[in-house]
């Protein structure tokens, strides 16, 4: 393959139809409370990890909903499982469990993520 001194950029657009949504289906099956998130961001605002890394549990959850699971395994390692997010969530989403189930799902589904 030739090189012309520039490369073809990967499209940033979320291609919902092409994305693999098995992970979110698995997670939602076990922890249906994640459905009721209203994306307020309280969780991320208080997140211990989010103050020192670019971890955002709110955004991670939204990306998961869209089937965007790239770097997910690495991403959830940043969570310290302190449970503050869950404490502040106005709708009582079981966020701690979300992280735990993602761990479980990644192993179970043998995702290469």
């Amino acid at each position: 393959m030739k090189s012309f001194g520039y490369t073809i950029t990967k499209d940033r657009q979320i291609d919902y139809d092409a994305n693999d949504r098995r992970l979110i289906e698995y997670v939602e099956g076990i922890e249906p409370s994640i459905r009721i998130c209203m994306e307020c961001g309280s969780c991320s605002a208080t997140c211990t990890a989010g103050h020192f890394t670019d971890f955002s549990i709110r955004r991670l959850h939204t990306l998961l909903q869209r089937g965007e699971t790239l770097h997910l395994r690495k991403e959830i390692e940043k969570c310290m499982l302190c449970g503050k997010c869950q404490l502040v969530c106005p709708r009582g989403v079981n966020l701690r469990n979300l992280i735990l189930i993602i761990h479980q799902a990644l192993d179970k589904l043998h995702h290469d993520l």
């Binding site: 012309f4 001194g5 520039y6 490369t7 073809i8 950029t9 499209d11």
Partner: peptide, 13 residues
């Protein structure tokens, strides 16, 4: 020249 990847990506889309 270095920006042309952007241009070619648009056409590819």
């Amino acid at each position: 020249q270095a920006n042309r990847g952007f241009s070619v990506s648009c056409s590819k889309k």
